[in-house]
């Protein structure tokens, strides 16, 4: 779980850097947020399935170790 929190923190900071960069380049805040989120809003079916599979694998390992600990 710790790893996932670290990853979430890093992703958050990176995305805010992207938003901030757009802002500096002259877009207003709403526009820069929208620009950053654009690629995730339009997804084809295949893309979405791959996306879900990747997310599934992201959570697979923490969940598995969690259950292992529970058993012990």
């Amino acid at each position: 779980m710790k790893i996932l929190w670290i990853a979430a923190l890093l992703l958050g900071l990176l995305l805010s850097y992207a938003v901030g960069l757009n802002y500096v380049l002259g877009f207003n805040l709403n526009k820069s947020l929208a620009k950053t989120m654009n690629p995730f809003r339009v997804m084809e079916i295949a893309e979405f399935i791959v996306f879900l599979v990747l997310i599934f694998f992201l959570f697979l390992n923490p969940v598995r170790t969690f259950f292992k600990k529970e058993k012990k």
């Binding site: 996932l4 992703l11 950053t36 690629p39 694998f57 992201l58 390992n61």
Partner: peptide, 20 residues
């Protein structure tokens, strides 16, 4: 080794979000 997949994932996300 357990860190690598989560980091790869966020890099993938960010690579899409960094520019349109």
């Amino acid at each position: 080794s357990r860190l690598i997949y989560p980091l790869g994932f966020i890099v993938l996300m960010f690579s899409l979000a960094m520019a349109s």
